[in-house]
């Protein structure tokens, strides 16, 4: 299991990386390496050139920009996990990131690497979907911004053209006092989830749900939102029957199936996890609304 031969490039700037990416034949971008390196070792991929983004400092870091939190694509999961800014403004991401692999892989794995790998049950794309993240893509000619819904094209297929590099993602935090929950089911701790669910919830002064996001990973080819479930909660007091109805919507989403994990099982998990995540999000939101039963 030794990687095939390739030429290695370690650009220092994004411009340099873009130039390499657009001129070299058949390049692969190397981010944290936690997915690409196994693929190389198994010889599932054999690129002529590997462009290592780990020395491009401008792609790394977490900052506030107006209302948005901006996370560089090469920001390591470890940095997100321990970021006070993320904990304060993006508690859903802070919670989800602890489900990503193991400490030893989070130390090198990057959020951009995960978004571009786009495993259907990965946590970070799911959070990006739940929070309507916008992805800034550096192109040879400049930049373009793509909402997560458009970025996740299909199974492990991001909306990236040859020569483009994901530079950062921008997330607008939800209002202070919102509720959140991230739950997933995997056979072992640290495995890719079979199904994961992210729930965000804002309550109005009367304790009714005024804003809802429910997203599923591991069910479809890409992480996806469940508008029917969101609609079912919106404007309600998020009572038991509302939660059950929303969870039932999650069980009706078209699911991928394979001999090991059939579609019906993914749907069942979606329902179970949703029914558990909504009350957890509600409890956090209710703490602020103070009026919900």
């Amino acid at each position: 299991m030794k990687a095939p031969s390739f030429r290695y490039h370690a650009p220092r700037t994004l411009d340099e990386a873009l130039s390499l990416a657009s001129t070299l034949p058949g390049p692969r971008l190397l981010a944290g390496g936690q997915s690409l390196m196994p693929m190389l070792n198994f010889r599932l991929v054999a690129p002529q050139h590997v462009i290592d983004l780990n020395r491009v400092a401008e792609l790394s870091g977490i900052r506030e920009d107006g209302e948005d939190l901006v996370i560089g694509s090469m920001t390591r999961q470890r940095e997100i996990e321990f970021s006070p800014l993320v904990q304060a403004r993006l508690p859903l991401l802070a919670e989800a990131i602890r489900w990503v692999g193991h400490r030893q892989t989070r130390n090198r794995g990057t959020i951009g690497g995960s978004l571009c790998h786009l495993d259907p049950s990965a946590e970070q794309p799911l959070v990006a979907m739940a929070m309507d993240a916008r992805l800034c893509i550096a192109t040879p000619g400049g930049r373009r911004e793509v909402p997560m819904r458009s970025f996740a094209v299909d199974l492990m297929t991001p909306a990236l053209e040859d020569g483009e590099i994901l530079a950062e993602l921008r997330i607008a935090p939800w209002a202070a006092g919102h509720g959140w929950a991230f739950l997933e089911f995997a056979r072992r701790h640290g495995d890719y989830a079979i199904v994961a669910v992210a729930v965000l919830l804002e309550l109005d002064a009367a304790g009714n749900a005024s804003r809802v996001s429910i997203a599923l990973g591991g069910v479809g080819a890409t992480p996806l939102r469940v508008p029917a479930a969101e609609a079912r909660l919106l404007g309600t007091r998020v009572a038991g029957t509302d939660i059950e109805a929303a969870a039932a919507c999650c069980a009706e989403v078209d699911a991928l199936g394979d001999p090991q994990v059939p579609a019906w099982y993914r749907q069942r998990l979606a329902r179970t996890l949703c029914a558990r995540a909504i009350p957890a999000a509600l409890a956090r939101a209710a703490g602020h609304a103070g009026s919900n039963p």
């Binding site: 198994f42 056979r187 072992r188 701790h189 640290g190 495995d191 001999p259 090991q260």
Partner: peptide, 28 residues
């Protein structure tokens, strides 16, 4: 509960990595 060396009906192994052949870890 965990370990299954899986094959399909063509006797092709479907379990070829430690990500899908599940050895128990400390948390289980």
């Amino acid at each position: 509960l965990f370990e299954k060396m899986g094959y399909d009906a063509e006797a092709q192994p479907v379990t070829g990595t430690f990500a899908d052949y599940l050895l128990p870890t400390s948390t289980e």
